Amino acid sequence: MPVRQRERDLLTRTAAAEERARLTALSEPGWPPAVQAATYRIVQESLTNVRKYAPGSAVTVDLVAAPDRAALIAAVTNTAPPSGDARPAPQAGPPTGRNGLAGLYERTAQLGGHLTAGPTPDGGFQVRATLPCPA
Protein backbone atom coordinates (compact mmCIF):
# COMPACT_ATOMS: atom_id res chain seq x y z
CA MET A 1 0.00 0.00 0.00
CA PRO A 2 1.46 3.42 -0.85
CA VAL A 3 2.62 5.62 2.02
CA ARG A 4 -0.03 8.20 1.39
CA GLN A 5 -2.99 5.81 1.66
CA ARG A 6 -1.72 4.13 4.83
CA GLU A 7 -1.25 7.45 6.58
CA ARG A 8 -4.59 8.70 5.28
CA ASP A 9 -6.24 5.62 6.84
CA LEU A 10 -4.53 6.36 10.18
CA LEU A 11 -5.64 9.96 10.03
CA THR A 12 -9.21 8.95 9.22
CA ARG A 13 -9.28 6.77 12.32
CA THR A 14 -7.81 9.65 14.35
CA ALA A 15 -10.42 12.09 13.06
CA ALA A 16 -13.13 9.54 13.84
CA ALA A 17 -11.82 9.53 17.41
CA GLU A 18 -12.82 13.22 17.56
CA GLU A 19 -9.35 14.63 16.97
CA ARG A 20 -9.06 17.41 14.39
CA ALA A 21 -6.66 16.11 11.74
CA ARG A 22 -5.15 17.18 8.40
CA LEU A 23 -2.79 15.37 6.02
CA THR A 24 -0.45 16.97 3.51
CA ALA A 25 1.19 14.25 1.45
CA LEU A 26 3.04 13.52 -1.72
CA SER A 27 1.31 11.90 -4.60
CA GLU A 28 2.35 8.27 -4.92
CA PRO A 29 6.10 8.74 -4.45
CA GLY A 30 7.38 5.16 -4.79
CA TRP A 31 9.67 5.38 -1.74
CA PRO A 32 11.67 2.28 -0.73
CA PRO A 33 9.70 -0.23 1.39
CA ALA A 34 11.85 0.38 4.52
CA VAL A 35 11.15 4.14 4.29
CA GLN A 36 7.42 3.49 3.78
CA ALA A 37 7.33 1.20 6.83
CA ALA A 38 9.24 3.69 8.99
CA THR A 39 7.01 6.56 7.88
CA TYR A 40 3.88 4.60 8.72
CA ARG A 41 5.27 3.72 12.15
CA ILE A 42 6.27 7.34 12.86
CA VAL A 43 2.81 8.60 11.96
CA GLN A 44 1.11 5.79 13.88
CA GLU A 45 3.09 6.34 17.09
CA SER A 46 2.79 10.12 16.85
CA LEU A 47 -0.99 9.97 16.44
CA THR A 48 -1.21 7.56 19.37
CA ASN A 49 0.73 10.07 21.48
CA VAL A 50 -1.60 12.90 20.43
CA ARG A 51 -4.63 10.89 21.56
CA LYS A 52 -2.86 9.91 24.77
CA TYR A 53 -1.20 13.19 25.82
CA ALA A 54 -3.14 15.92 24.00
CA PRO A 55 -6.72 14.78 23.43
CA GLY A 56 -8.79 17.24 21.47
CA SER A 57 -5.82 19.01 19.86
CA ALA A 58 -5.60 19.63 16.16
CA VAL A 59 -2.97 17.51 14.43
CA THR A 60 -1.21 17.94 11.11
CA VAL A 61 0.68 15.21 9.29
CA ASP A 62 3.07 16.44 6.58
CA LEU A 63 4.82 13.98 4.27
CA VAL A 64 7.04 15.84 1.84
CA ALA A 65 10.11 15.21 -0.26
CA ALA A 66 13.28 17.14 0.41
CA PRO A 67 13.96 19.58 -2.44
CA ASP A 68 16.45 17.17 -4.04
CA ARG A 69 14.12 14.16 -3.43
CA ALA A 70 16.99 12.48 -1.57
CA ALA A 71 14.89 12.23 1.59
CA LEU A 72 11.33 11.96 2.81
CA ILE A 73 10.41 14.35 5.61
CA ALA A 74 7.59 13.23 7.89
CA ALA A 75 6.29 15.65 10.51
CA VAL A 76 3.40 15.16 12.90
CA THR A 77 2.51 18.33 14.79
CA ASN A 78 -0.27 18.88 17.28
CA THR A 79 -1.51 22.09 18.83
CA ALA A 80 -1.79 22.55 22.56
CA PRO A 81 -4.78 20.61 23.84
CA PRO A 82 -7.88 22.43 25.00
CA SER A 83 -7.46 23.87 28.49
CA GLY A 84 -7.46 21.24 31.18
CA ASP A 85 -7.11 18.28 28.81
CA ALA A 86 -3.30 18.09 28.72
CA ARG A 87 -1.40 15.18 30.18
CA PRO A 88 2.37 15.17 30.72
CA ALA A 89 3.92 14.95 27.24
CA PRO A 90 6.69 12.53 26.33
CA GLN A 91 10.18 13.83 27.05
CA ALA A 92 11.90 15.74 24.26
CA GLY A 93 15.08 14.21 22.87
CA PRO A 94 16.14 10.59 22.52
CA PRO A 95 14.45 8.47 25.20
CA THR A 96 15.55 5.04 26.31
CA GLY A 97 13.82 1.71 25.66
CA ARG A 98 12.46 0.15 22.49
CA ASN A 99 8.85 1.37 22.47
CA GLY A 100 7.22 4.67 21.70
CA LEU A 101 9.51 7.52 20.75
CA ALA A 102 12.59 5.45 21.61
CA GLY A 103 11.60 2.94 18.94
CA LEU A 104 11.13 5.75 16.42
CA TYR A 105 14.59 7.16 17.13
CA GLU A 106 16.06 3.68 16.68
CA ARG A 107 14.14 2.91 13.47
CA THR A 108 15.07 6.28 11.96
CA ALA A 109 18.75 5.88 12.87
CA GLN A 110 18.85 2.39 11.32
CA LEU A 111 17.87 3.99 8.02
CA GLY A 112 20.52 6.70 8.36
CA GLY A 113 17.91 9.32 9.16
CA HIS A 114 17.33 11.88 11.87
CA LEU A 115 14.37 12.30 14.22
CA THR A 116 13.51 15.13 16.57
CA ALA A 117 10.66 15.24 19.05
CA GLY A 118 9.74 18.03 21.40
CA PRO A 119 7.42 20.85 22.34
CA THR A 120 6.51 23.61 19.91
CA PRO A 121 6.53 27.31 20.89
CA ASP A 122 2.71 27.38 21.00
CA GLY A 123 2.44 24.56 23.56
CA GLY A 124 1.98 21.71 21.09
CA PHE A 125 4.36 18.90 20.22
CA GLN A 126 6.12 17.84 17.02
CA VAL A 127 7.77 14.65 15.85
CA ARG A 128 9.85 15.20 12.69
CA ALA A 129 11.85 12.60 10.82
CA THR A 130 14.10 12.93 7.79
CA LEU A 131 14.53 9.57 6.09
CA PRO A 132 17.12 9.25 3.32
CA CYS A 133 15.90 7.67 0.11
CA PRO A 134 18.67 6.17 -2.00
CA ALA A 135 18.19 6.62 -5.73
Rank of each mutant, 00 (worst) to 15 (best):
M1L: 13
M1T: 06
P2Q: 14
V3T: 14
R6M: 08
E7M: 08
R8S: 06
R8W: 10
D9L: 02
D9G: 03
T12V: 13
T12N: 12
A15I: 08
A16M: 15
E18V: 02
A21F: 01
A21M: 01
A21W: 00
R22F: 05
R22Y: 04
L23V: 01
L23G: 02
L23S: 01
T24E: 09
L26S: 05
E28H: 10
P29Y: 05
P32W: 02
P32A: 12
P33M: 03
A34C: 08
A37M: 11
A38Y: 08
A38P: 05
Y40M: 08
Y40P: 01
I42K: 11
I42M: 12
V43Y: 04
V43N: 04
V43T: 11
E45A: 06
S46T: 01
S46V: 00
V50G: 00
V50T: 00
R51N: 11
K52S: 13
K52E: 15
Y53E: 04
Y53G: 00
Y53I: 00
A54M: 04
P55N: 12
P55I: 02
G56R: 07
S57T: 00
A58W: 14
A58R: 15
V59D: 05
V59N: 05
V59A: 07
T60P: 07
V61Y: 05
D62C: 04
D62N: 15
D62W: 05
L63W: 07
L63P: 13
V64K: 10
A65N: 13
A66N: 11
P67S: 04
R69F: 01
A71R: 05
L72G: 00
L72R: 02
L72A: 01
I73C: 01
A74W: 02
V76E: 04
V76Y: 05
T77L: 01
T77K: 07
N78E: 02
T79Y: 05
T79Q: 08
A80L: 03
D85W: 06
D85T: 10
A86L: 10
R87D: 05
P90C: 15
P90D: 13
P94V: 15
P94Y: 14
P95C: 14
T96M: 08
R98Y: 04
N99D: 11
N99F: 12
A102H: 14
G103F: 15
G103V: 09
G103T: 15
L104C: 09
L104D: 09
Y105S: 12
Y105F: 14
E106G: 13
A109L: 11
A109E: 13
Q110H: 06
Q110I: 04
L111D: 09
G112M: 07
G112F: 09
G113K: 10
G113P: 06
H114P: 03
A117Q: 09
G118Q: 10
G118K: 14
P121H: 10
P121L: 09
D122C: 05
G123A: 02
G124Y: 02
F125V: 00
V127H: 10
V127Y: 07
V127L: 08
R128Q: 07
R128K: 15
A129Q: 11
A129L: 07
T130R: 08
T130P: 02
L131F: 09
L131H: 15
P132N: 11
C133I: 13
P134V: 10
P134K: 15
